[in-house]
Design a protein around this nucleic acid. Structure first.
Lengths: 218, 218
DNA sequence: CACGGCATGTCAGGAAACTGTCAGCTTCGG
DNA sequence: CCGAAGCTGACAGTTTCCTGACATGCCGTG
């Protein structure tokens, strides 16, 4: 499931993208209205998450232009708290739902899920690699149908690898995405974590590319 | 039977609430459109009584948004005398009936009763998980057929978990939805609450995902 | 008003899980 | 066969969660 996230504030955009990725979606982020319009009209997303205060072309105009162009992708708009005018205008312009800032990442994910379900009747996003299955709603992992208990870090690591399956992921990239960046650089924490994860999901699941990083699904 | 009354004029709101309470309903009063939207979407009422001239978010928008969000609760709108435009718009927006002001309290109660009867099976007043049953109208909880007394917070917590059964719910999400967001961030109130709830409904009902949150229905 | 009861938050102690560090070992590439 | 990279078991510090005890505040009753 691909989601286009349109938000100019870097921090919020990153948070939203991370939360969506958490849930098994594939977010793409752009930072201004023109890019949003171009991407949404050119490509086919399952949903849009759209901030209203945008550079170049404001969010409402994006909604109107897309609807005028018969783009029916469900749109969730983000509005400042109490700016009810914006909400009403947004709905009028053709948005499907709104979420007042500040919001819980979980709530955004839930709303996006609801939008997509309403639009197309799809199910909970699941990440799959062979007989390994990550249910992002339950936050459970099953291998060959058998449930496996993972710690928070193990879960994030596995999710990131499965999400990027077929690609080699370097240790520093993992530190960025699993630990949020700040971590002792010369530490074997990742190696230890990978080891523990392998014991739980099966050693053959995660491959090592000596000197490059780790990979799932060679 | 729970009725959400949305009316900004204090006197009218009180009268309506009193009349409904007399008739055996359980009224809840809010005074602006945003609160109405929040309560009606979050919770499960048997009917809405909705004034049109509201602060923050007008009544018609509330109706439209609720219907857009698939909230099917029957809605009775209150309109000024002779404002037939409003009535048409209200019905168009998805309201089920209207009552021109001024009105007799008895008539309002009668109409509300008719609405609820007409709605019949639309609502989901029962939340169920295994042998645990929540009657949202009576606000009662039964486990294995035996009634269990819950405090207000315990009830809300349980309802939220059952409503989201099969999904891991983080503590911060619970703080948002059970406490309405404002709460000391480093407090173990949620843990204590969960503990007390477990003692009442059976410890095995609520699972802990260490580092992730709580879940019902693993 | 004093009282008790109830709901709920805070705190402290402890158990269990989580995770980083380290040292020694294995494996791989050249 | 060597060195570097990666793996692993053991250990310890930290975090998370649970629980009982206590404090506080509210509310209805006598």
């Amino acid at each position: 499931m691909r989601i286009l996230v349109v938000e100019d504030e870097r921090r919020i955009a990153d948070d939203v993208a991370a939360a969506l990725a958490d849930a098994g979606y594939v977010p793409e982020v752009v930072h201004d209205g023109e890019a949003a319009w171009f991407r949404a009209e050119t490509d086919d997303f399952d949903a849009l998450v759209l901030d209203l205060g945008l550079p170049k072309l404001d969010g409402l105009s994006v909604v109107r232009k897309l609807r005028a162009a018969s783009v029916r992708t469900p749109i969730l708009i983000l509005t400042a708290r109490g700016a009810w005018m914006e909400r009403v205008e947004g709905i009028d312009a053709g948005a499907d739902d709104y979420l007042p800032k500040p919001f819980q990442a979980e709530e955004l994910v839930a709303r996006v899920g609801a939008l997509i379900r309403r639009a197309g009747g799809h199910l909970t996003p699941q990440l799959v690699y062979r007989d390994l299955n990550i249910d992002t709603r339950r936050r459970t992992v099953a291998v060959g149908g058998r449930n496996v208990e993972l710690s928070p870090l193990e879960y994030r690591l596995l999710r990131y690898l499965v999400h990027n399956q077929g690609r080699v992921v370097s240790q520093s990239e993992l530190i960025d995405h699993v630990y949020g960046g700040d971590h002792e650089p010369d530490s074997n924490a990742v190696e230890v974590l990978v080891g523990r994860l392998r014991r739980k999901v099966g050693a053959e699941t995660i491959g090592t590319r000596r000197g490059h990083g780790y990979i799932i699904g060679s």
